[in-house]
Protein backbone atom coordinates (compact mmCIF):
# COMPACT_ATOMS: atom_id res chain seq x y z
CA UNK A 1 0.00 0.00 0.00
CA UNK A 2 2.65 2.46 1.08
CA UNK A 3 4.80 1.37 -1.80
CA UNK A 4 2.01 1.78 -4.32
CA UNK A 5 1.26 5.29 -3.12
CA UNK A 6 4.90 6.30 -3.15
CA UNK A 7 5.38 4.91 -6.63
CA UNK A 8 2.22 6.45 -7.96
CA UNK A 9 3.14 9.85 -6.47
CA UNK A 10 6.58 9.80 -7.98
CA UNK A 11 5.49 8.76 -11.44
CA UNK A 12 2.05 10.29 -11.84
CA UNK A 13 0.90 12.64 -9.12
CA UNK A 14 3.95 14.90 -8.68
CA UNK A 15 4.27 15.78 -12.39
CA UNK A 16 0.54 16.43 -12.52
CA UNK A 17 0.71 18.68 -9.49
CA UNK A 18 3.56 20.58 -11.13
CA UNK A 19 1.40 21.13 -14.19
CA UNK A 20 -1.49 22.44 -12.14
CA UNK A 21 0.69 24.78 -10.11
CA UNK A 22 2.16 26.23 -13.27
CA UNK A 23 -1.30 26.82 -14.71
CA UNK A 24 -2.62 28.36 -11.53
CA UNK A 25 -0.20 31.24 -12.11
CA UNK A 26 -2.33 32.29 -15.12
CA UNK A 27 -5.32 34.55 -14.78
CA UNK A 28 -8.70 32.90 -15.37
CA UNK A 29 -9.43 35.08 -18.41
CA UNK A 30 -6.09 34.21 -19.97
CA UNK A 31 -6.67 30.57 -19.30
CA UNK A 32 -10.06 30.57 -20.98
CA UNK A 33 -8.78 32.59 -23.92
CA UNK A 34 -5.97 30.17 -24.59
CA UNK A 35 -7.52 26.86 -23.60
CA UNK A 36 -10.80 27.47 -25.42
CA UNK A 37 -9.53 29.32 -28.45
CA UNK A 38 -11.07 28.18 -31.73
CA UNK A 39 -7.86 26.54 -32.73
CA UNK A 40 -7.68 24.60 -29.45
CA UNK A 41 -11.36 23.60 -29.64
CA UNK A 42 -10.92 22.24 -33.15
CA UNK A 43 -7.93 20.27 -31.96
CA UNK A 44 -9.85 18.82 -28.97
CA UNK A 45 -12.67 17.76 -31.23
CA UNK A 46 -10.29 16.06 -33.62
CA UNK A 47 -8.22 14.41 -30.88
CA UNK A 48 -11.11 12.97 -28.91
CA UNK A 49 -13.26 12.30 -31.97
CA UNK A 50 -10.57 10.45 -33.88
CA UNK A 51 -9.51 8.59 -30.74
CA UNK A 52 -13.09 7.54 -30.10
CA UNK A 53 -13.48 6.25 -33.63
CA UNK A 54 -10.13 4.46 -33.44
CA UNK A 55 -11.05 2.84 -30.11
CA UNK A 56 -14.43 1.79 -31.49
CA UNK A 57 -12.84 0.24 -34.56
CA UNK A 58 -10.46 -1.61 -32.27
CA UNK A 59 -13.31 -2.75 -30.02
CA UNK A 60 -14.93 -4.48 -32.97
CA UNK A 61 -11.90 -5.73 -34.89
CA UNK A 62 -9.92 -6.40 -31.71
CA UNK A 63 -12.72 -8.61 -30.38
CA UNK A 64 -12.72 -10.50 -33.63
CA UNK A 65 -8.95 -10.88 -33.56
CA UNK A 66 -8.93 -11.98 -29.92
CA UNK A 67 -11.69 -14.47 -30.72
CA UNK A 68 -9.77 -15.96 -33.62
CA UNK A 69 -6.54 -16.11 -31.60
CA UNK A 70 -8.15 -17.91 -28.65
CA UNK A 71 -10.68 -20.12 -30.42
CA UNK A 72 -8.90 -21.39 -33.48
CA UNK A 73 -5.72 -23.33 -33.94
CA UNK A 74 -4.09 -22.63 -37.26
CA UNK A 75 -0.55 -22.48 -38.59
CA UNK A 76 0.99 -19.09 -37.88
CA UNK A 77 -1.27 -18.41 -34.91
CA UNK A 78 1.71 -17.81 -32.60
CA UNK A 79 3.23 -15.37 -35.08
CA UNK A 80 -0.05 -13.50 -35.46
CA UNK A 81 -0.36 -13.43 -31.69
CA UNK A 82 3.11 -11.92 -31.37
CA UNK A 83 2.36 -9.39 -34.10
CA UNK A 84 -0.45 -7.95 -32.00
CA UNK A 85 2.21 -6.41 -29.76
CA UNK A 86 4.01 -4.88 -32.72
CA UNK A 87 2.43 -1.42 -32.31
CA UNK A 88 3.78 -1.42 -28.74
CA UNK A 89 7.29 -2.10 -29.86
CA UNK A 90 7.44 0.04 -32.94
CA UNK A 91 8.42 3.69 -32.37
CA UNK A 92 5.25 5.53 -33.26
CA UNK A 93 7.05 7.96 -35.51
CA UNK A 94 8.10 5.02 -37.62
CA UNK A 95 4.52 3.81 -37.70
CA UNK A 96 3.32 7.23 -38.87
CA UNK A 97 5.99 7.43 -41.50
CA UNK A 98 5.20 3.95 -42.77
CA UNK A 99 1.47 4.58 -42.92
CA UNK A 100 1.90 7.92 -44.65
CA UNK A 101 4.18 6.31 -47.17
CA UNK A 102 1.79 3.44 -47.71
CA UNK A 103 -1.27 5.54 -48.34
CA UNK A 104 0.20 8.55 -50.12
CA UNK A 105 -0.61 8.98 -53.78
CA UNK A 106 2.43 7.01 -54.82
CA UNK A 107 2.37 4.50 -51.97
CA UNK A 108 1.70 0.78 -52.25
CA UNK A 109 -1.92 1.03 -51.25
CA UNK A 110 -2.40 4.71 -51.94
CA UNK A 111 -1.93 4.28 -55.69
CA UNK A 112 -5.06 2.14 -55.73
CA UNK A 113 -7.05 4.00 -53.11
CA UNK A 114 -6.44 7.60 -54.13
CA UNK A 115 -8.01 7.20 -57.61
CA UNK A 116 -11.08 5.82 -55.81
CA UNK A 117 -11.27 9.02 -53.82
CA UNK A 118 -9.99 7.43 -50.63
CA UNK A 119 -7.37 9.73 -49.22
CA UNK A 120 -5.83 8.34 -46.08
CA UNK A 121 -2.49 10.10 -46.03
CA UNK A 122 -2.43 13.66 -44.69
CA UNK A 123 -6.15 13.65 -43.79
CA UNK A 124 -8.31 13.10 -40.70
CA UNK A 125 -8.92 9.58 -42.02
CA UNK A 126 -5.19 9.05 -41.80
CA UNK A 127 -5.21 10.22 -38.19
CA UNK A 128 -7.88 7.66 -37.33
CA UNK A 129 -5.83 5.02 -39.11
CA UNK A 130 -2.68 5.88 -37.17
CA UNK A 131 -4.54 5.97 -33.86
CA UNK A 132 -6.20 2.63 -34.63
CA UNK A 133 -2.80 1.16 -35.33
CA UNK A 134 -1.12 2.35 -32.13
CA UNK A 135 -4.03 1.37 -29.88
CA UNK A 136 -4.65 -2.03 -31.47
CA UNK A 137 -3.06 -4.25 -28.79
CA UNK A 138 -5.21 -3.00 -25.90
CA UNK A 139 -8.56 -4.54 -26.76
CA UNK A 140 -6.98 -7.78 -27.95
CA UNK A 141 -4.81 -8.16 -24.87
CA UNK A 142 -7.56 -7.42 -22.35
CA UNK A 143 -10.06 -9.73 -24.04
CA UNK A 144 -7.76 -12.67 -24.62
CA UNK A 145 -7.56 -13.93 -21.01
CA UNK A 146 -11.32 -13.53 -20.56
CA UNK A 147 -12.01 -15.47 -23.73
CA UNK A 148 -9.55 -18.15 -22.76
CA UNK A 149 -11.28 -18.63 -19.42
CA UNK A 150 -14.73 -18.52 -20.92
CA UNK A 151 -16.42 -21.87 -20.33
CA UNK A 152 -17.38 -23.60 -23.54
CA UNK A 153 -20.21 -25.20 -21.55
CA UNK A 154 -21.98 -21.85 -21.44
CA UNK A 155 -22.22 -21.82 -25.19
CA UNK A 156 -23.20 -25.47 -25.24
CA UNK A 157 -25.87 -24.80 -22.63
CA UNK A 158 -27.30 -22.03 -24.79
CA UNK A 159 -27.25 -24.39 -27.79
CA UNK A 160 -29.12 -27.14 -25.92
CA UNK A 161 -31.74 -24.54 -25.05
CA UNK A 162 -32.20 -23.82 -28.73
CA UNK A 163 -30.00 -20.76 -29.27
CA UNK A 164 -28.14 -20.44 -32.56
CA UNK A 165 -24.56 -19.16 -32.75
CA UNK A 166 -25.33 -15.51 -33.21
CA UNK A 167 -27.98 -15.53 -30.51
CA UNK A 168 -25.57 -17.28 -28.15
CA UNK A 169 -22.93 -14.68 -28.84
CA UNK A 170 -25.31 -11.77 -28.37
CA UNK A 171 -27.03 -13.01 -25.22
CA UNK A 172 -24.43 -15.14 -23.47
CA UNK A 173 -20.90 -14.41 -24.65
CA UNK A 174 -21.06 -10.68 -25.27
CA UNK A 175 -22.48 -9.64 -21.86
CA UNK A 176 -19.74 -11.67 -20.19
CA UNK A 177 -17.07 -9.98 -22.31
CA UNK A 178 -18.44 -6.49 -21.89
CA UNK A 179 -16.44 -5.45 -18.79
CA UNK A 180 -13.15 -6.52 -20.33
CA UNK A 181 -14.14 -4.98 -23.64
CA UNK A 182 -14.80 -1.67 -21.91
CA UNK A 183 -11.45 -1.80 -20.16
CA UNK A 184 -9.77 -2.48 -23.47
CA UNK A 185 -11.73 0.32 -25.09
CA UNK A 186 -10.76 2.75 -22.33
CA UNK A 187 -7.09 1.84 -22.60
CA UNK A 188 -7.12 2.07 -26.38
CA UNK A 189 -8.90 5.41 -26.18
CA UNK A 190 -6.45 6.77 -23.64
CA UNK A 191 -3.55 5.61 -25.73
CA UNK A 192 -4.99 7.22 -28.85
CA UNK A 193 -5.62 10.54 -27.09
CA UNK A 194 -1.99 10.63 -25.98
CA UNK A 195 -0.59 9.69 -29.38
CA UNK A 196 1.65 12.24 -31.04
CA UNK A 197 4.48 10.77 -33.06
CA UNK A 198 2.61 8.81 -35.70
CA UNK A 199 0.01 11.52 -36.26
CA UNK A 200 2.73 14.06 -36.89
CA UNK A 201 3.71 12.17 -40.02
CA UNK A 202 0.39 11.13 -41.42
CA UNK A 203 -1.56 14.29 -40.71
CA UNK A 204 -1.20 17.47 -42.72
CA UNK A 205 -1.19 19.30 -39.37
CA UNK A 206 -3.28 22.21 -40.59
CA UNK A 207 -4.60 24.35 -37.73
CA UNK A 208 -8.41 24.07 -37.38
CA UNK A 209 -8.49 21.08 -39.74
CA UNK A 210 -6.06 18.31 -39.03
CA UNK A 211 -4.14 19.40 -35.99
CA UNK A 212 -4.42 17.31 -32.84
CA UNK A 213 -4.11 18.73 -29.33
CA UNK A 214 -0.51 17.66 -28.67
CA UNK A 215 0.44 19.63 -31.75
CA UNK A 216 -1.26 22.71 -30.38
CA UNK A 217 0.73 22.23 -27.20
CA UNK A 218 3.92 21.84 -29.22
CA UNK A 219 3.02 24.99 -31.11
CA UNK A 220 2.87 27.01 -27.89
CA UNK A 221 6.09 25.46 -26.68
CA UNK A 222 7.80 26.43 -29.92
CA UNK A 223 6.86 30.03 -29.15
CA UNK A 224 8.14 29.63 -25.57
CA UNK A 225 4.62 30.23 -24.25
CA UNK A 226 4.86 27.58 -21.56
CA UNK A 227 1.84 28.72 -19.60
CA UNK A 228 -0.37 28.61 -22.69
CA UNK A 229 0.85 25.11 -23.49
CA UNK A 230 0.06 24.05 -19.94
CA UNK A 231 -3.42 25.51 -20.14
CA UNK A 232 -4.26 23.39 -23.15
CA UNK A 233 -2.65 20.41 -21.46
CA UNK A 234 -4.82 20.86 -18.37
CA UNK A 235 -8.00 20.81 -20.45
CA UNK A 236 -6.87 17.63 -22.13
CA UNK A 237 -5.94 16.11 -18.82
CA UNK A 238 -9.32 16.90 -17.27
CA UNK A 239 -11.22 15.59 -20.26
CA UNK A 240 -9.26 12.34 -20.36
CA UNK A 241 -9.76 11.94 -16.66
CA UNK A 242 -13.50 12.49 -16.90
CA UNK A 243 -13.82 10.04 -19.76
CA UNK A 244 -11.81 7.39 -17.95
CA UNK A 245 -13.92 7.75 -14.81
CA UNK A 246 -17.11 7.45 -16.84
CA UNK A 247 -15.87 4.31 -18.54
CA UNK A 248 -14.79 2.93 -15.20
CA UNK A 249 -18.28 3.43 -13.78
CA UNK A 250 -19.86 1.85 -16.85
CA UNK A 251 -17.47 -1.04 -16.51
CA UNK A 252 -18.42 -1.53 -12.89
CA UNK A 253 -22.06 -1.56 -13.93
CA UNK A 254 -21.36 -4.09 -16.68
CA UNK A 255 -19.52 -6.40 -14.29
CA UNK A 256 -22.17 -6.28 -11.55
CA UNK A 257 -22.73 -10.01 -12.06
CA UNK A 258 -19.24 -10.81 -10.86
CA UNK A 259 -18.38 -11.50 -7.30
Amino acid sequence: MGYSIAYLSLVVLIPLAGLLIRVSAMSWADFVRVAFSDRALAAYRLTFGASFIAATINAVLGTLLAWVLTRYRFPGRKILDALVDFPFALPTAVAGLTLANLFSQTGWLGQFLVPLGIHLAYTTGGIVLALTFVSLPFVVRTLQPVLEEFEVELEEAAATLGAGRWCTFRRVVFPALLPALMTGFALAFARAVGEYGSVLFISSNKPYVSEITPQVIMGWLDQFEYANAMAVAVVMLSASFAILITINLLERWASRFQR
Binding site: E151, E153, L154, E156, A157, A158, A159, T160, L161, G162, A163, G164, C167, R171, V172, P175, A176, F257, Q258
Partner: peptide
Protein backbone atom coordinates in the same frame (compact mmCIF):
# COMPACT_ATOMS: atom_id res chain seq x y z
CA UNK B 1 -30.72 -26.77 -31.10
CA UNK B 2 -33.40 -28.90 -32.73
CA UNK B 3 -33.20 -31.96 -30.51
CA UNK B 4 -35.41 -30.62 -27.77
CA UNK B 5 -33.30 -32.00 -24.97
CA UNK B 6 -32.57 -30.52 -21.58
CA UNK B 7 -28.92 -30.78 -20.61
CA UNK B 8 -27.57 -30.12 -17.14
CA UNK B 9 -23.83 -29.60 -17.08
CA UNK B 10 -21.57 -30.74 -14.31
CA UNK B 11 -20.47 -27.14 -13.80
CA UNK B 12 -24.15 -26.07 -14.15
CA UNK B 13 -23.06 -23.50 -16.76
CA UNK B 14 -25.49 -20.89 -15.50
CA UNK B 15 -25.42 -17.62 -17.41
CA UNK B 16 -23.61 -15.39 -14.93
CA UNK B 17 -24.84 -12.15 -16.42
CA UNK B 18 -28.48 -13.14 -16.08
CA UNK B 19 -30.81 -13.34 -13.11
CA UNK B 20 -32.25 -16.67 -12.00
CA UNK B 21 -35.48 -15.77 -13.79
CA UNK B 22 -33.70 -14.95 -17.05
CA UNK B 23 -31.66 -18.12 -16.84
CA UNK B 24 -34.77 -20.27 -16.50
CA UNK B 25 -36.60 -18.23 -19.15
CA UNK B 26 -33.75 -18.45 -21.68
CA UNK B 27 -35.02 -21.45 -23.63
CA UNK B 28 -38.53 -20.00 -23.69
CA UNK B 29 -37.28 -16.64 -24.97
CA UNK B 30 -35.42 -18.35 -27.79
Amino acid sequence: QKRNIGFVFQSYALFKTMSVFDNVAFGLKI
